[in-house]
Structure formats: C-alpha cells, structure tokens
Design a protein around this nucleic acid. Structure first.
Length: 1006
RNA sequence: GCGGGCGUGGCGAAAUUGGUAGACGUGCCAGACUUAGGAUCUGGUGCCGCAAGGCAUGGGGGUUCGAGUCCCUCCGCCCGUACCA
C-alpha cells in the first residue's frame, strides 16, 4: 500500500509545533476566549499509562476544534509536583525530592508531547518551583490578613475588623471566628497593648492556629485531611490513621459552607459530583436545645437535633465519650465503669468503630438532666455511637423515633414513649414518621409536624433554652503537614513578652520563603517536622519559622490563574490577563477529587473573589469527569497451543508465535487447540522476561503433550515454535473473595476458554485462577504504556482509539481489541489521497474536479455530526462518523480536493498529525492547519427529494415505500393502502386507522 | 441505610430524544488475491425457523397508532457516602 509512516510524520509535526509555538494563544485579542483545562498530574515515577491521556485527548480535541471555530484558546499543562511519593523515595534513598521530581517531569513531558497535545508549553507551571509557590504563600498571607464578615457575607481585610473594634468594640461585629472570643468595648480594645490586641485578632483570621483533633498517620509522620483518609487508613500507602490532638494551622472553609452549597446551582457539573460535595458539606437544619443539669440548673447540656418535635419522647441523653462534661457528670459509684468504657473507646481505632455499627455499647454516668419542656429527669449515658466531632457531641435520645436510640433503649431497658398517633409497632422497631398528631407531648399535643416545630422553637427561644440552628458536617480544613516536600508556611514566631509565642507573617518582600536544605527527610529527634533539621534557618537570623509545610491541595487550589500569566513576578496574574480569561470554560479530570481539590479550589476562588482579585466566584464553569480506564491484574496466564494431531493430519494451518492478546482471541476457537493455564505464583518472578517464560512454558508443554503420544521430534519443534506465548488473562467476572476464584467457578464463567484446558496447579496443589478488572497501577503490574501504542500504531490512532472506546464519562477496561480497526481507518483515509503505482511508490491522486451532490452529501453529513458530537462531548460517535464518511468516499471513488480538504479539517482535532501532513500536501502553508476555519455546514446538501417510508402494520414494519418529500399525507395514505404487501396484511379488512407522520413513518392499524 | 448512575448481540457500543433496535468497530463464517498471512479486498452475521414467519433492549405491568426511550413495580450491577442526631 501507499505507505504512511506514522512515526516519522508524527515526530516531524511534533517538532514543528514545538519550534513554532503553534498553540500559543494570542494575547488579549478581541476574539472570544475559550479556556480548556486538564487537571494537572502529579508526576509519579511510573510515568503515564493509557488511562491518563483519556481526558487529555478529549480536552485537546475540544481545544483544537474551538481554535478552528475562531476562538482564542488557552490550553495549558503543568504539574502538581509537591507530594508524598517523592518524599518517601527521598527518605529511603537520601535523594533530594527535587531531583526525582525533575526526572519524572522530564519523562512526563516527553510522553505528553508524544501524543501530540496542543498545549502552550510556554505556560507550564510547577507547584514546587519557588516562582510559583511564592504566590501560594502570598495567598496564605492574604487569608491570614482577612476575616469573614457575616453581615456582608464575604471575606474582608482584617483592617475593617480593626476599625470596628476601635469604633464600637465587639458590638457590631458579626464574624465567623473561634468559639472562645470575648466581648469588649471600644474603650477596652483601645486600652490593650499592641501584642494583646494582635493576639485577639488571631481568633478571627481566615487562617489560624488551633488545637485540633487531627488524623495522625504515624507511618507517614504527618497529619492528613479528612479527604485523604479512606476507611480509617491513609489514601496514599494505606497506613493506619489515629486521632490526635495537635496544634495546627487551620483554614476557615466553614465560613463558606453555605456559598459553596448555593454556588453548585450555578455551575454545569454532573449531578453526582454536586451531590458528593453537598453531602460532604452536610448542611442540616434543626435546633439546638439546652438541657439543664438536675443538680445545677445553671449548667446545661447543649444538643443539636433535626427533630425538635420529638422532644417529649426523650427518655435518655447520650454524650460522646470525649465530651467535655463526661468527667464532671460521672458520679463516684459509676466512676470505675465510666473510666473503663472511655479507655476502651480510646483504644478502638476509627476503623473498628466503623466496622461494627451493630453492636450496642455505652455506660451510665450516674447523673441526670432535665427535659426543658416538661422537667422530666433524663439519665445521661456515654456511648461511642455519638461522635464528638459532629454537632455538640451530645444527643437527646428518642427511642420511639430513631433506630439507634431504640437499640440503645432496648439494650439498657429504658422506656420507649410513643409521640405520634401514626407511629406503628414501636415495641418492634423505631418509627421515624412525621405523619399524624402528637400524643404524650405537652404543649404540642394534637398538632401536626408542620405546626409543632415552630411552636417548640419559639417556646424554647422565649426561655433562652434553645433556638433554630443550622449545622454543617464539614469542619475547618487542617492546613499543616509535618513533611518536607511542600510549601513552607510564611510565618515566624515571636515571644509576646510573657513567654507566649505568637505567629507573625514574614514581610511580603521576603517572599518566596524557600525550602531550606536538610540532612535527612525525617522528623528531628525531638519530634519536630523535617524542616527543624535545617541549619540556621531563622527569620532575620533570629526568629523560628513555622516548621510544618502546606498540604498537597494548597498549590492546586489556584493554579488555573497562574496559567493566565505564568511568568509575572509582581502579582499572581495580571488584572488584564484575569479579566480577559475570567475562568475555566471546560475542566476535565477524575471524580476522585470531588471533595478535595474541587472543594478547596472553589473555597480559595471565592476568597479571591471576595477580596476582588478575581472577577468570577466559581472557577470551573463546566466540568466533565472522564471515566477510569481500568487495567487487568495478571493473575492467570494462558498458554495457547495447537496441533495435538501431527501436522500432516491437520486441516488447519499452524498458529503463529505471539504474545499479543488479540491473537489469543483469534485462535481461541481453533478446534485443535489446547489452553494451558498457569497460576500466578508459578509465573511470579519471570513475569516480564519472555525468554525465561518461553523456556518454562516449553518444558511444561512437553510434559503435557507427551500424554497425547503424538509427538515426534520434528513435529515437536514445530509445535513449540508455534504456540502462543503467554498472556495475562481477562476474565469477564469481577472478583470474588480474596481475589481468588475457585477452579469450578472459573470454568463455569468461561467455558469457551476452559474446555479442553490443562491447569497447572500451585506448588501447594491449589489452583489460583482469577483476574480482576481494576484501576491501572504499577503495583498491579497491569499498566499499559501509551508509548508502546504510539510506537506501533501512532499517536493519531491512540487518540482516535481512546475516544472510540466508549462514552468519555464511562469507566471501561482497557483492551486493544479493535485498535486495528482504527489503524485500518487511518490508512484507508490516507488512500483517498495516495495510491501505490506499479513501482511501489506513493502517487498523489487528488483531483480538482467538481464534487457531485452525493459526495457533498457524504461530506456535510460528517461536518454536521462532528459539530454536534463535539458540542455534546460525544467523541466516540464522532469517530464512527469519520469511518462512515471515509468508507463512503472510498466506495464513491472520490479523490476530489474540494471534499477531502474539508474532511482533513474536521478530522484534524482528533488526528492532528496525519491531517497536518495532508494539509501541507494539499498546498497549504505547513503548520497552518490550526489557523484554518472549520468548514461551514450547508444543510442544502442533505436535502432529499424523497423519503423511504417504513410502513408498519399494527406497529410492525412490513415494507418500505418511497414518497416525494412534499407528498401530501392523504396521497401517501391512499398509495400505502393500495400497496400489495399492505393489501396482503389487510386480508380484505378496512384499517381502523392510518397514522402518517411526514418524513418519519406510516402505521396502518387493523 | 441514604444519595447518584446503569442494565441493549460473543465483545466495545449506537439509536435524530416517542417513529425501521443493534450504526461504527471488533469477533466469527464464507470467498478473492497470495510462497505465506498477524497484509488487503468482497459478502454474510441478534435469536429460533428450510421457509412463511415468530421472538428480542434485566423481569412483570401500564400509557400510546407506535416504547430501548415515558409511568408503576420487582430484580441485578457499579460509584459515592455513612452510627451526622
């Protein structure tokens, strides 16, 4: 065939784009802007696998398409280059994380360029560069210098707070702040020393120091954010996590809870993602109620409830074991039992606690409080089903309406009082209905749910015993990490005179505060973070710096702004640049960042918006989650061979040697073949060594085949040369206990593979035959490297194939079945332009003839489909429309410039290399493809003068008849009824009804 | 438990939003060309049936001239989340 050398051509154009800065957007033009962003990767040591590019390919297609459509497109790429793996590696090897990171980055960039993405590489950012983290530190300082004003509902400079204090003290300050702030007058404030007043402001700032119960991970030596902990272990590494009280930098994200919630209504994200954020923020509307202690009516237990209407059903009170009143409330008689319980609860890890939510446990304190409504004595218990971190850490228990309370009441034999006449079977289980009228309920007896709640809240408010309250599940974000490889916090500590150290920001002119060098990347002997090892690292040579670093999410919470103006040394991005680019039009990335990066980014963006640094209060207008491309774990190896009979007796040709899985499928139906399965452990150790594998498999096969008594030396050799080498097996069942499938289950699930198969057992005699479809990762040995695909098929084929695999959002297992089809398509496309002549040389066969209506119709169908598919992010169907177009043009034998040139343009976002090559061959200036205009769809070419009507009889299609487009419905009806096929079905009867839908269908109802 | 999503050939998947179910690709079958085929090309291919025809979008029911699509109900799978008071 006319040869298209994908390697050479693709590399040529990649170099060209690089050298000519082809994809650099114009600066501040009057063109409309379009900002397409990929979630930037953490450059891990494993390099890219085929799952990574999926989203990048989609965003690249959109970028290239928008350029052709006349937009000024910003499409950048960068790296989230601070992070734990590089630091773990540093701890093990002593290698500076910057060195490993740099090496990984080089590899990533090379791999990305290999796929032909249209990034403007001149804008690349790296979060670990000091020129970048200078601005991460600057934003931290801005947060420190701000407070949240509830009255204006936005963050303001700390100066406006100081003014309020100086004018009126705390009287008209309505701030989101620490709980323990005191009230004072302006006179009192003005009398304070500078240090004293400064110390007070620390309780109001948006970033602040606090003793917080944190997720401490001893193995990693750092605290983790809630979203970095999964199932009680660290997300990275899977190490145990325990609760620990530590002094930490915190961020007042809770100030933004409501706006983070309502903002979701203004953005185009998937419902499931929005729902995840809503759940994470966890707003619940209810009331807080004060229960006075029986022994001291001036002391109260504060509870939060969403069902204040059930308050007459309260028969006991439950506090979290960590509750601050727990010790005080314990009577001497109960002291021993309570202490035992509290200690046991402490020992139970978070994980254990979550594991058995069924078991009821708890202990009576010996004390009572009073129901504020009816004065009933209510016994107080401690139990770990009440969480210290939610609400007030105390629950008013209503066993008739809440199943957990009901279980507890049964266990401790406490009364269960019905409160609504509609409650059923409450001696069997709790009934949380809101139906019916209240009974046993004092002032709300006879009322409905809708009446009772406001009545109670107003009664409680009058007596100052409670109020309506909104509670959030989300906590303030912990901002400190006891690690080395992160942004230093730009803070130093100074003695306030009374021995108390207060935190101060360093001067803005001292930014960036660079990471110092250390001898080891481990905590100091005294337990301080690694930065404590830095020799002589002091502010102005005198003051201790903060030794913790920022969390992983800091650098990624604003990076999309840096791309707008990446080299600016005076500001994080110029006002002009931000005003032009505004925010991200399309953001593509994984759903795993739902409650981490995507929430923190919205938080910081809203803060920057409040302080008027940015014009939009949501950063990402439209967000698409690409589905994960899953790999398969290599649990089973299959050796496929053939020719049990001697070669001469076989009617089938021998099979080739190959390790390509597609070939395995090709021969799986071969009637004279035999499958041999090797267990994982048998294969382990020679996993990636073909020579060893062949050797091993040959020996094993000899043993097996000798049983068939058909082998002589010659045939034997032939046979072994022709077995299919080995392949990791894909089994279509998802696993299963301990990743191990029983042999029988496996045979049942894939009879097509296992019939006539031999199984090689483990040394201990067991058979391990299982496989798993799951996320690609290095540890699973199931990574497919995109470079291999690019090498063999080309980047254009990889791009088309990944899109062709299925809808972008859907998770899908990686398999290469079908990649040949895309490869064939590319070559078929090429053959519209070139053909072999007799000498085997390629010959240009494009002509300047006028296209026929049929050819134009084929072309414009494809133009229309490409447009609508890209607009709907339906890339898989778009690829299929290209295939149809090329197939039809081939059939029409169309080699006309007027058609092919437009085809090149519409295909170019998907397959940029081959189209750039052909664009130049068509006589255009090399490299000018991205500056061309997308062909204009002309519906006139698609107009048909006739339509082939499907004719249904009682809803079933029996025939088709062609009618002119403008044919009257009455004419159509008459002719349809006269048709002989219809006549046959009518059997002489008169139809009840005839439905004629113009240009759609005819249905004859009998 | 709760929330979100999904269920269509051997496989990946389409279906103009209520109008010819299975486009496109793969796989499979047959053929052509070949020293050869893991190249290329042609035809066939949802299931049952020799055929006429019948049956088919997880199961059952409904609305409609017409349902993969809308409604009800049951079953199954995936993702997220969880003693959240």
């Amino acid at each position: 065939m006319a040869d298209y050398n994908h390697r050479e051509t693709e590399q040529k154009w990649q170099r060209f784009w690089d050298e000519h800065n082809t994809y650099k957007p114009e600066e501040l033009t009057s063109k409309p802007k379009y900002y397409v962003l990929d979630m930037f990767p953490y450059p891990s040591g494993a390099g890219l696998h085929v799952g990574h590019p999926l989203g990048y390919i989609a965003s690249d297609i959109v970028s290239r398409y928008k350029r052709l459509k006349g937009y000024n497109v910003l499409h950048p790429m960068g790296f989230d280059s601070f992070g734990l793996p590089a630091e773990q590696y540093a701890i093990q090897t002593g290698q500076h994380p910057a060195v490993t990171t740099e090496a990984n980055l080089t590899r990533y960039i090379e791999q990305l360029k290999n796929i032909g993405f249209s990034y403007d590489w001149s804008r690349e950012v790296r979060t670990s560069d000091s020129s970048y983290y200078k601005w991460t530190q600057w934003i931290f300082m801005e947060l420190f210098n701000s407070w949240y004003n509830r009255d204006t509902n936005r963050a303001e400079s700390i100066d406006t707070l100081l003014n309020k204090f100086a004018m009126n003290g705390t009287t008209d300050v309505n701030a989101v702040c620490d709980e323990d702030v005191a009230s004072f007058t302006a006179a009192e404030w003005n009398a304070l020393s500078k240090t004293e007043s400064y110390a007070i402001t620390l309780k109001y700032r948006l970033t602040y120091l606090a003793n917080a119960v944190v997720n401490w991970c001893p193995a990693l030596g750092t605290v983790l954010a809630n979203d970095e902990v999964k199932d009680g272990v660290s997300e990275r590494g899977g190490y145990p996590v325990e609760q620990k009280l530590m002094r930490q930098w915190m961020m007042r994200i809770t100030a933004y809870a409501d706006r983070l919630l309502t903002g979701l209504n203004t953005i185009d994200w998937t419902e499931s993602l929005k729902e995840q954020q809503r759940n994470w923020i966890g707003k619940s509307i209810g009331a807080s109620v004060k229960f006075p202690l029986a022994t001291d009516n001036n002391q109260f237990i504060d509870v939060f409830t969403t069902r204040v209407d059930t308050i007459y059903g309260v028969t006991f009170m439950v506090l979290a074991p960590e509750h601050e009143l727990a010790v005080q409330l314990t009577t001497p008689e109960q002291k021993e039992a309570v202490q035992a319980y509290v200690n046991a609860a402490k020992l139970r890890s978070e994980r254990d606690r979550m594991a058995d939510t069924k078991a009821v446990s708890g202990v009576f304190t010996g004390s009572y409080c009073l129901n504020p409504l009816n004065g009933e004595r209510v016994p107080i218990f401690l139990a770990d089903y009440v969480l210290a971190g939610y609400g007030t850490g105390a629950v008013m228990a209503v066993p008739s309406g809440d199943q957990r309370d009901w279980n507890f009441a049964k266990h401790f034999d406490l009364p269960i009082i019905p409160i609504l006449d509609a409650q059923k079977d409450i001696d069997q289980q709790a009934d949380n209905t809101k139906e019916g009228r209240y009974i046993n309920s004092g002032i709300i007896n006879g009322m409905t749910y809708q009446q009772a709640t406001p009545a109670l809240i107003s009664w409680l408010e009058d007596g100052k015993l409670g109020q309506g309250k909104i509670n959030f599940r989300m906590r303030d974000a912990v901002f400190s990490r006891q690690r080395y490889w992160g942004e230093p916090v730009p803070v130093y500590f100074k003695d306030s005179g009374n021995g108390q150290l207060l935190p101060y920001l360093i001067d803005e002119s001292d930014l960036p505060l660079e990471l110092p060098t250390v001898d080891k990347y481990l905590p100091t002997e005294t337990g301080e973070p690694p930065l404590g090892r830095a020799e002589g690292w002091k502010y102005k040579g005198d003051f201790d710096y903060e030794l913790s670093t920022m969390p992983g999410w800091a650098g990624s919470s604003w990076y999309w702004y840096r791309y707008m103006d990446p080299n600016n040394e005076g500001v994080f991005a110029s006002k002009e640049a931000i005003d032009y680019w505004q925010n991200v039009d399309l953001y593509i990335g994984g759903t795993e960042h739902a409650t981490g990066h995507l929430l923190y980014s919205r938080f910081w963006n809203k803060f920057l918006y409040d302080r008027q640094y940015v014009p939009q209060d949501e950063p990402f207008k439209k967000l698409i989650n690409q589905g994960m491309i899953q790999g398969r774990s290599n649990f089973v190896y299959r050796v496929k061979t053939t020719l049990i009979k001697p070669f001469e007796q076989s009617q089938y040709p021998p099979l080739p040697v190959s390790s390509n899985e597609d070939d395995l499928d090709m021969i799986s139906g071969h009637p004279e073949s035999i499958s041999v399965f090797f267990s994982k452990n048998v294969i382990d150790g020679i996993e990636n060594d073909n020579a060893e594998m062949i050797d091993y498999a040959q020996k094993t096969l000899n043993n097996i085949l000798s049983k068939y008594e058909r082998i002589d030396g010659r045939r034997h050799n032939l046979l072994i040369r022709r077995f299919l080498l080995y392949t990791p097996l894909h089994v279509d069942v998802n696993i299963v206990e301990n990743d191990i499938l029983g042999l029988d289950t496996f045979k049942k699930s894939r009879p097509d593979l296992t019939e006539n198969a031999e199984f090689i057992p483990e040394p201990d005699g067991r058979y391990i035959v299982g496989a798993e479809v799951e996320k690609m990762s290095k540890s699973k040995f199931n990574v497919v490297n995109p470079d291999d695909i690019v090498e063999r098929y080309g980047a254009d084929v990889l791009r088309l194939y990944e899109m062709f695999l299925g809808p972008l959002e859907q998770a899908k297992p990686w398999n290469t079945n079908g990649i040949d089809g895309v490869y064939r398509f590319i070559r078929k496309f090429w053959r519209l332009f070139y053909k072999d002549n007799a000498t085997g040389k390629s010959q240009w066969i494009v002509t300047d003839e006028q296209p026929t209506p049929a050819e134009l119709k084929v072309l414009h169908k494809a133009i229309q489909k490409t447009e609508s598919d890209i607009d709907a992010y339906s890339f898989n169907t778009s690829v299929s429309s290209f295939m149809i177009c090329v197939n039809e043009l081939s059939t029409l034998n169309c080699h006309k410039r007027a058609v092919l040139q437009d085809l090149v343009l519409i295909l170019s976002p998907y397959a940029p290399h081959i189209t750039e090559e052909l664009w130049a061959a068509l006589g255009h200036e090399p490299g000018s493809l991205s500056k061309a205009e997308f062909p204009v769809f002309n519906p006139a070419y698609l107009v048909e003068d006739a339509f082939e009507y499907p004719i249904q009889i009682n809803g079933k299609v029996r025939t088709t008849i062609s009618f002119a487009i403008d044919r009257a419905a009455t004419d159509i009806e008459r002719e349809v009824l006269a048709d002989e096929v219809v006549q046959k079905w009518l059997e002489g009867k008169t139809p009840k009804k005839v439905v004629v839908v113009p240009k759609r269908i005819v249905n004859v109802v009998i």
